[in-house]
Computed example of a mutant assay.
Amino acid sequence: MHIAHSIADLRSALAGRGRPAFVPTMGNLHDGHIALVRQAKPLGDVMVSSIFVNRLQFLPHEDFDSYPRTWEADCAKLEAAGCDVLFAPREHDLYPEPQTFKVHPDPLLADILEGHFRPGFFVGVSTVVMKLFACVFAGGAGTAVFGRKDYQQLMVIRQMARQFALPIDIVAGDTRRAEDGLALSSRNGYLSPTERAEAVQLSRALQALASAAVAVGADLPTLEAQAAAALRARGWQPDYLTVRQRANLLAPEGTPQAGTLVALGAARLGSTRLIDNLEF
Rank of each mutant, 00 (worst) to 15 (best):
A4D: 04
A8W: 03
R17S: 01
R17Y: 06
A21L: 11
L29H: 06
V46S: 03
V46A: 05
V48T: 05
I51P: 04
V53N: 05
N54I: 03
Q57M: 09
F58P: 03
D63G: 13
P68R: 06
D74S: 13
K77I: 00
A81L: 13
A88V: 12
E91P: 14
E91F: 05
Y95H: 01
D111P: 03
L113Y: 08
L113T: 10
L113K: 04
G115H: 00
H116P: 07
H116W: 12
R118L: 13
P119T: 13
V128I: 09
V129N: 08
V145K: 02
G147R: 02
I157Y: 00
M160H: 09
Q163H: 11
I170S: 06
R177T: 01
A178E: 15
S185I: 05
S186G: 01
R187Q: 14
L191N: 06
S192C: 13
E195N: 03
A197D: 13
E198H: 11
L206K: 09
Q207C: 00
A210R: 09
V216P: 08
T222M: 11
A227Y: 12
R232F: 12
R234C: 05
G235L: 09
W236G: 02
N248A: 07
L249E: 03
T255P: 10
A266K: 13
